[in-house]
């Protein structure tokens, strides 16, 4: 019994990491109708920038706070140079240009930080483990779950209870209408885009102590993040959360129950969802 509970925890923890990375991708899609394959790069930048801050200051809180903020800077550059001018270019052009930017980002990481993976230790304050029905479980992983849930709750509050959130929802629903009603999309779009990048950066720095910090990490996370967004239905917060949970569950329990199929479970889930519901599970727009 405790075995399955621990595996469920593993699944939820993986889901929360995916959620942090995917939420920006999904919101940008829903709001601006932009497919941004370069999004994975911000996840990698978050991890690397966090590492650099940690090396420079030795402070974990600073690393975790500054990494997402610093990730917003390349985010702003990408918005200004590519996304803003491609908004009306159609998905085809967006796919190519942002894929190109992703390639550039990998080489930038290699040039700046080298090919050898870097060490990002678990913060000492969260290094221990707690007993879950007789099985020790790392505190840090539990913290990741808590962080993911907190971010989801905060985003939900902002979107549903604030003026800014109402503007975002209106713009997702119908950009022209929102603009006509006085929503300044010229300001709203870059702010949301950069926040999405910062969340991916947060995902990256949070993942760093669990995984390894290496140049390919942004490419590796891209496909799972896309799967989350598409399974959930583009552009809705609930959809992204549900998508992340489903993908995390499929990946974890696929690995545990059918070792011969592990790695395929996520894609089987994606295929099944799209065959049955060609627009994802909870699309923002019908």
């Amino acid at each position: 019994m405790s075995y399955w509970i621990v595996q469920l925890l593993n699944a939820v923890q993986a889901s929360m990491l995916l959620f942090l990375v995917a939420v920006g991708l999904g919101v940008v899609f829903g709001l601006m109708n932009v497919v941004n394959l370069a999004h994975g790069a911000f996840y990698a930048f978050g991890a690397y920038l966090g590492w650099t801050v940690l090396q420079a200051t030795g402070s974990f809180p600073l690393a975790f706070l500054l990494a997402p903020a610093l990730t917003g800077l390349p985010g702003l550059a990408v918005y200004a140079l590519a996304v803003a001018r491609m908004q009306r270019a159609g998905h085809l052009a967006q796919v190519i240009a942002t894929l190109g930017l992703l390639f550039v980002s990998v080489e930038a990481l290699r040039a700046l930080w080298g090919d050898i993976p870097l060490e990002f230790p678990v913060p000492p304050a969260l290094a221990g483990s707690v007993d879950i029905l007789g099985t020790p479980y790392p505190v840090y992983r539990l913290s990741v779950v808590a962080l993911g849930l907190a971010v989801a709750a905060l985003l939900w509050l902002v979107l549903s209870r604030t003026i800014a959130g109402a503007m975002v929802r209106a713009a997702v629903d119908n950009v022209e209408m929102a603009a006509a009603l006085g929503v300044r999309t010229g300001l709203l779009f870059p702010v949301v885009f950069v926040l999405g990048c910062a969340l991916a950066g947060l995902g990256g720095v949070v993942a760093a102590p669990l995984l390894s910090v290496h140049p390919g990490m942004g490419v590796e996370v891209l496909v799972p993040a896309l799967v989350v967004v598409v399974v959930g239905g583009l552009g809705s917060l609930q959809g992204t959360l549900v998508g992340a949970l489903l993908v995390g569950l499929a990946d974890t329990f696929g690995a545990v129950m059918g070792p011969q199929l592990s790695g395929a479970a996520v894609y089987a889930l994606l295929a099944a969802v799209l065959v049955l519901r060609p627009g994802g599970l909870l699309p923002a727009r019908s």
């Binding site: 190519i96 550039v104 290699r110």
Partner: peptide
Amino acid sequence: HWGAVLGLFLVAAV
């Protein structure tokens, strides 16, 4: 680092 050149080429093409 040919990946970077290829990437920039893609961006330029768009």
